[in-house]
Structure formats: C-alpha cells, structure tokens
Design a protein around this nucleic acid. Sequence first.
DNA 1: GCCCTTTCGAAATGATTTTTCGTTATACAC
DNA 2: GTGTATAACGAAAAATCATTTCGAAAGGGC
Lengths: 162, 162
Amino acid sequence: MDRLDRKILRILQEDSTLAVADLAKKVGLSTTPCWRRIQKMEEDGVIRRRVALLDPGKVNTKVTVFVSIRTASHSIEWLKRFSEVVVEFPEVVEFYRMSGDVDYLLRVVVPDIGAYDAFYKRLIAKIEIRDVSSVFAMEQIKYTTQLPLDYMMIDNQKSGED
Amino acid sequence: MDRLDRKILRILQEDSTLAVADLAKKVGLSTTPCWRRIQKMEEDGVIRRRVALLDPGKVNTKVTVFVSIRTASHSIEWLKRFSEVVVEFPEVVEFYRMSGDVDYLLRVVVPDIGAYDAFYKRLIAKIEIRDVSSVFAMEQIKYTTQLPLDYMMIDNQKSGED
DNA sequence: GCCCTTTCGAAATGATTTTTCGTTATACAC
DNA sequence: GTGTATAACGAAAAATCATTTCGAAAGGGC
C-alpha cells in the first residue's frame, strides 16, 4: 500500500470507467503492474465493489428524510427483529446505531412528503417503535462515496498532491 | 423508461463490472439493444457515474460522526462561505441543509475519536460556528448507494419481481 | 393494408482486459 | 563485493469485451 496504490484508489473512487492503460498512464506506470495492483486491492477487499451511481431526481427520490429513533429499553429479540425489518426497506439507504440521545438514525429517500408518510405507515405496521422523529433535508449540499485516503498508512505518507 | 431499463439499473447499481452480454442475458435481451439502453441512460443522466466503493475499515475511516449545526441567523455571505469551507473537507462525505431545529447536518468519516477532534479543530479554525453538536455512530447497520427504483414511472409499473 | 418509427439481433470491427514471458530493481546473507 | 531470492516492472501476445454496422421484426397511426 504505497503512494501509487493511493493514487489509483483516488482515481477509481472518482471514475471507474477508465481503461487500465489510461489509468496506468495517469499514475505513471505501465498497464500490467497497474492492473495487478488493482487486482490485489480487490482481493484484499480494499476495493469492495464497482457500482453505477444514479441521479436521485431522475429516479424520483429527490427527498431525503433523517429519522431518529429512541427505543427506551427493549429485548435483544426486539432489536434483532427491528434491524431485520428496517434493512429490508429499499428506501432506507443508511442505518446507524448511535451513541447518545438517539438510539438509531435512518436516512430514507422518497419522492415527496406523501411518499414518506406512506413509508412511515408501512414501517410502523411491521414493527412497533416507541419514539420516532423525522426531519427533512431541504438541500443536499454534498454527497460523495469517496472516502478520504489521507488516513491510510501511518508511515509512507509524504502526502503530496497525489 | 420501461421494465427492462429498471432491471438494468437494478443490476448496475449492484455491480457495474458485468459484461454487457451477461447483463443482457440477465434481463432477457441481446447485447446490442441492452448496450444502447445503457448508453441512453448515461446520456440522459439517469446513470451519473461509475465508481469503485472502498472498504471504510481498510482505508482507516471506520468511524462515522454526525455533526448537527445551528447557526441562529447569519448573513448570506456567511452561509456561502460556510458551505464552501465545509465542502472542501474530504472527511465530510454528506452535507445537508435541514428543516426544523438543526440547520445543517454533516456526516464525517474519520479513523477514531482523536482524528475527529483534530478535524473539528481544523473546521472551527476556518470558520466560526455558533452551535455544534457531534454524535458518534456505534455501528453502521446498512449503507447502500442503491436508490429504490419503485418510484420511477408512475405508469408502466406492473411492479413484479424485476 | 401500408408507411413510419422504434426496437431488436447476428455478425464484424475495434478496443480493452488479462496472460505470458523476460527484465530490472531491492534486500539480505555470506 | 558477489550471489541469490523476492518483488515489482514492461512489452507483446492472447482472450475477452465493447461498439458499430447492417438488416429484420414489431408496434402505431392513417
């Protein structure tokens, strides 16, 4: 995991459609070693998958809602079932167990407020939830799948423009 | 935008490495029309980009922090600068303007609590912020880039297993 | 029925990925 | 220094895949 691997990851996080030869040129390598590095990072699980990202507007899921859930105290059984139920909804794109005041946080994407209400009804029909609070996002100012690569490798940094 | 396009999008959101011929077989089409449909959806901007998704653990960004920001009332200028500053941090992977109590919500990824503190200091060094509240995620139960496709196309649904 | 438009599929072409092979660099023991 | 092992490199061949070309089939209006 050196400077070149980081450079490769930075590019692939941006755009994974480049030909290996072009990518190689960008990082200053020939195609074979570049290809092998990519291969290795896929085997090692650093690169998890390659996917297509869609336009939320174009697929009619412009609206993001953050749903905070407080559960008081519940049985292990309830928690297990709760997770299973929530995960199944395709509208739930993120789901976290939190520290602090709120127990769970969901990011839900829907076309509009009406669709959110319908989602909400379907959710509480499947499982009883004590305390739910929904907040709508007015605007998505930034959304990226690119993770910062500055924290990889404690040594070997040299942290230049690459 | 019909059933077949939806089927194609569903697969590409999962895995964009499939050969067009294999994808075509899966949706019940031959390669040329399938390729053309993909091409069109890229032109139309339905498919925005293709990217590699990395393992947060493997790049040392396991920890997610949600940062709630209240700004009271500020000038337009301040708001503009605030957005510009926040967007520049690679640790900020999501950034929303919210309705309700909280004005802005950030999702920040870092290696650990210490790194979050360092990030926080760098942030407030760049711009003064009134009221900040940080909550750590204990566990990421679900995270997907796959948008639900059930809301596309009001007509033409037929909504089967495809 | 006929024309127009659209979508389809088979096959040829061109580009890219992946393998093969030989070379070069680096490190370590002696 | 010399020898040897290990790991990374690069050029070129082979295999696979994307893209184009062409013609045929399917729907829609008149």
